[in-house]
């Protein structure tokens, strides 16, 4: 497991990292926690000529309240998200989701920004990021811009973040306790065969689904069926049946498309039931 030759640079500021990305273009890859990039490099599935390690950039790891939202630095580890009292008190879904990621070692190294921008179709965070209607800040040569969660995931391993941009911050709204993430894991990798995140708020229900399709998505059919209704068990069951409507489910040795679609429905129902129980 030996990667191909590469150069290694370690910027100390976001601005310097942006300049390095601009300079090296497609030859460069950002290294955050390394849990996607390094295995890919060791298998020689990724052969970047330059690795730009943003691990030592100060002030990219934090969780703090900012207005009505909670701001999370892109380099915050899954373990810190999982353990954050601020998140657990004000917006517990992300902390719950982080607890489902990998194992202790993975959570101690992997970062929220790295995970989101890698956009693995079976990663856990995307479901919750969508359900929370989060905002993602990116910095590039053209300055800073904010991407809405619903616009962030573009396709398999593709996001709205440009090759010369860096994710710096994720903001999630404060929520009630009526949230939940329910996942069926792929036994080998621990990623999601299907994961459903739900947020039940004063203005309706939002549902994010990961693992099922080439990219995580909002289960619009479920949200619509629940809008403005009292969340009875019957309604939840009927609405959850829409969790994979209109998507093209993935199939592989771990689960067929129909099983993934089915799990999306089951886990959506269970997440909704769980969130209701938490009210």
């Amino acid at each position: 497991m030996y990667p191909a030759n590469f150069d290694y640079v370690r910027p100390s500021t976001v601005e310097e990292a942006v300049r390095l990305l601009a300079k090296h273009g497609d030859d460069a890859k950002l290294l955050a926690g390394g849990h996607s990039l390094i295995p890919a490099m060791k298998l020689r599935l990724a052969r970047p000529k330059v690795v730009v390690d943003i691990g030592r950039i100060a002030h990219l790891s934090y969780i703090r309240e900012a207005g009505g939202a909670i701001a999370i630095g892109a380099m915050t580890t899954h373990a810190d998200v999982q353990a954050s009292k601020t998140l657990r008190d004000k917006s517990p879904l992300l902390a719950e989701t982080a607890s489902h990621i990998g194992d202790v070692q993975v959570r101690n190294k992997g970062t929220i920004g790295g995970s989101l921008v890698h956009a693995d179709p079976a990663a856990d965070y995307p479901a919750s990021i969508l359900a929370l209607d989060a905002e993602i800040d990116v910095v590039g040569p053209r300055g800073t811009r904010t991407i809405k969660a619903v616009d962030f995931f573009v396709d398999l391993l593709q996001t709205a973040v440009a090759a010369d941009e860096i994710v710096t911050e994720i903001r999630v709204p404060a929520t009630a306790k009526t949230v939940a993430y329910v996942k069926t894991e792929q036994k080998a990798s621990g990623f999601a065969l299907a994961g459903a995140a739900v947020v039940i708020g004063p203005n309706g229900v939002r549902v994010g689904i990961t693992g099922v399709a080439a990219k995580a998505y909002r289960a619009a059919g479920v949200e619509k069926a629940l809008a403005g209704q009292k969340l009875t068990p019957d309604l939840i069951a009927r609405a959850s049946a829409q969790a994979s409507a209109g998507v093209d489910p993935l199939g592989d040795i771990h689960a067929s498309p129909s099983f993934r679609a089915h799990l999306a429905q089951v886990n959506t129902r269970r997440a909704l039931e769980q969130a209701v129980r938490r009210s």
Binding site: L43, Q186, K187, A188, S189, I253, H254
Partner: peptide, 11 residues
């Protein structure tokens, strides 16, 4: 061989 890594071979 489809199960050549721990990503696909579950222990």
């Amino acid at each position: 061989l489809v199960t050549g890594e721990f990503m696909d071979y579950a222990i």
